[in-house]
Structures are given as structure tokens and as C-alpha cells.
Design a binder for these strands. Structure first.
Lengths: 194, 194
DNA sequence: CGAAAATTTGACATGACTCAACTGGAGTGG
DNA sequence: CCACTCCAGTTGAGTCATGTCAAATTTTCG
């Protein structure tokens, strides 16, 4: 068996796994193919699973009382995705996950993650490090909303995530930055003119 | 030795630890007493440590190019605190940690945390769960900035953290919400009048 | 090509910011 | 015990960034 073909080593990059450990991991991850505009999680559904994104692009958004959508996060290759607030507590989703580009995902349940944490301890360390990165990422984003102008935050986004920018609509970016499409349009115009 | 007096069992609440494990944990945590307005982390210092707050109140803030302070987080009893972006990568702090009320902290280094993760695996699970909570917390906060009015976010803050609200100045809250003290003052007036 | 979706533009409203002045309370020293 | 100072908080006036609503334009895609 070629190691290259193992989804376990693709997902848990840079950690060393024995053949036996790989065989524990493999059956827990289920390949899922999703098409553009497909919804893989609806508000109100109990969240048992999270997804590893092998390729494509998705977003998770919240729909407020007035019907406006607010994109909380995008996910591209090698990112993990779920309504984590609900996933961590196995409760009902308050957000929707929508597929933006044809994607290949690997679904894994919380139950199986806990099995892996217990039986392949490196996976828990791996996920802890992922969570640490997410922490730093979120803090940076919050800090950005506190002191940066919308123009700066837009440029940050475009420079930091050029791959995402190519795959999503401007109104997705606007809803991620927390501004209207009109405002984003004017900011883009301003940038082009200068 | 009374278990009640063990800082290990206070910090790692609800996880079962053998006497031997407690003895591994204890010496890694160093008690620190800090006074009001004392700075325990300055911008530019390499961040080797994080702190467990036993009592008191602190805040971590970022000072932008124009000199304005932006409070990223408060910390009260049973919270953990550091410039995590720098702590996770053992790099230089970009934020300042200031003591707001006389506090009792327990300092622990990243090196010692890694020792504990390895030798007392329950601690890694404990921290992973803390990180999951932090993830959910940050996501909720980001979502709030996307669709809630300042008034709503202020009320959320006061209702969610009454203990913090009692201990901090209004200008701290304003800098946490990302508005000026004047705006917060007007919002408070509006709330009182209605 | 033609319809639907996405983006841009214009006019006006609104919420928050800036700057400046003022109020009220806590602490200090004569 | 009062006068003084300092600090936090409030209030007012003017400005600016962003929102809203409506319409025009451009792009996408069957």
C-alpha cells in the first residue's frame, strides 16, 4: 500500500503514523462530494460531524433576524469546517454551511474523533495545535475589526487569502467583512483609482 | 496533604489526577501577585509564559499606530491569559497585559506545558477542551460584530460578564466593543432613559 | 441570444467619530 | 474642613463613513 494514497497521512500532515494507526484512522473518514450551492448543514440540525476539506471552497454563514447573511468563515483545501459552536457540544446548528465551488470533503464524527484522540494520541496533539492556530487567527480578526478601516481589512483579506478571493463572489467577501456590497464596491473603486 | 490545597486540582478542574501526577504539575506553576495598573507583559518581549488567573482582573490590549488602546480580552478568576498569538509560536508580544484589579496568577511556561501534555495526557485533553470553548467564544464575538448594533453588543457584554463589568472602567468596555467612550456614554444614557 | 445574477452608481439618511467644553466624584494637602 | 486637582464620564456641534433604497450597468450562464 502506498502511503501517498492514505487519506490519514493527508489529513494528519507531518505527524508520523504506524501502519496500524493509519488503519485505525482511515475508516473514520468518509469521502463526500458536493456541488456548487449545495447545503451540507442546515440551521437546527444536530451537528455530529466536522469536515476536512480536500479541495474546493465552502462558507459558513449566519442568517440574522432580518434575513441578511453573515459569512463567519470560508474553507478551502486543508481547512476543517463545521458549526463548531454546535459541534463541540453536539447541539443544534445556528449556522448554514454552503458549498461555493465543487468540493471534496472528508466527514468525521465527534464520536470517532474522540476514539482517535484516545487511541492515536498524536491526533489530539495535532488538533490542539490546529485549535491554537485558530485562536491566533480569530484574535487577529477581532483586533482587525477594532482598529482597522474597512479598506484595510479588505486589502488584508485579498492579500492573505488570494486563493479564496478567486473563488468567491464579492458579496460573500462583503458579508465576511461586515459591510454591504455597495460599500465594498466603492472601496474597490477607490483602490483601483489610486 | 489535603487535595483542597493543591493548585493542580484547582487549575485542572474536574479531571482526575493521581498524587504522582499532582506532584508533576505543582512545581510547574508559579504564584504571582500583581497590583492594579501593573504591566505583566510588554510589547516586544518574547512570550514564554501563560497565566492562570486565580483571582482579580486583567486585560490584554493592542496599541495601534495612533496610540489608541484596543482591549482584546479581559480575564477574571479561572481564565487563562497570554498574548497567545505570540505564546503559541514563542515570538514577540504585540499586545500588553495590564492588571486592572489586584490579582493572583499562576505562571507556567510553554516548555512546562509541553512537558505536562506528554507526561500527564489528561492535561492536553483539558486544554484542548478549553481551546474548543475559546473557539466558540471568538466565533460568537465575531458574529456579533457582523450583525449586532453597538447597543446590543454592550447589553450582551453586561449580561454575559456582570463580574467583569463591575471591575472595569467604562473606557475599558468601550475599547473592547470597538467604540469611543463618548459613543458608549450616549448608548448608556439611551438605555437608562428607556 | 436572453434572462438572471452580480456589481456599480447616485441621492439621501444615520450612526459613530472628533474635538472641545463641562460635570461630578475621589483623593490630597494646606 | 475646604480648596484644589485629577480622572472618568457626559454633552454638544460639526464631520465622515457606511447604510438604505432605487436604478443602471455589467457579467454569467443556460
Amino acid at each position: 500500500m502506498l502511503r501517498k494514497e492514505s487519506i490519514a497521512t493527508e489529513i494528519f500532515k507531518n505527524i508520523s503514523l504506524s501502519q496500524k494507526e493509519i488503519e485505525l484512522i482511515e475508516p473514520k473518514f468518509h469521502k463526500v462530494l458536493v456541488q456548487k450551492s449545495e447545503i451540507i448543514l442546515n440551521v437546527g440540525e444536530v451537528v455530529y460531524d466536522q469536515y476536512y476539506v480536500a479541495s474546493g471552497c465552502l462558507r459558513i454563514f449566519y442568517r440574522d433576524a432580518s434575513g441578511k447573511e453573515h459569512t463567519v468563515q470560508f474553507a478551502i483545501a486543508d481547512w476543517w469546517l463545521s458549526d463548531y459552536t454546535a459541534f463541540f457540544t453536539t447541539s443544534k446548528a445556528i449556522m448554514t454551511i454552503e458549498c461555493i465551488q465543487p468540493s471534496v470533503l472528508y466527514r468525521v464524527s465527534k464520536k470517532d474523533m474522540n476514539f482517535l484522540y484516545k487511541n492515536v494520541p498524536q491526533t489530539e496533539t495535532f488538533i490542539r495545535l490546529k485549535l491554537e492556530k485558530a485562536y491566533a487567527f480569530f484574535q487577529k480578526r477581532i483586533l482587525g475589526t477594532l482598529y482597522k478601516t474597512t479598506k484595510e481589512r479588505y486589502l488584508d483579506f485579498v492579500l492573505t487569502y488570494p486563493d479564496i478571493e478567486k473563488m468567491v463572489k464579492n458579496y460573500h467577501i462583503a458579508s465576511y467583512l461586515g459591510v454591504t456590497t455597495e460599500t465594498l464596491s466603492r472601496i474597490r473603486k477607490e483602490i483601483i483609482e489610486n
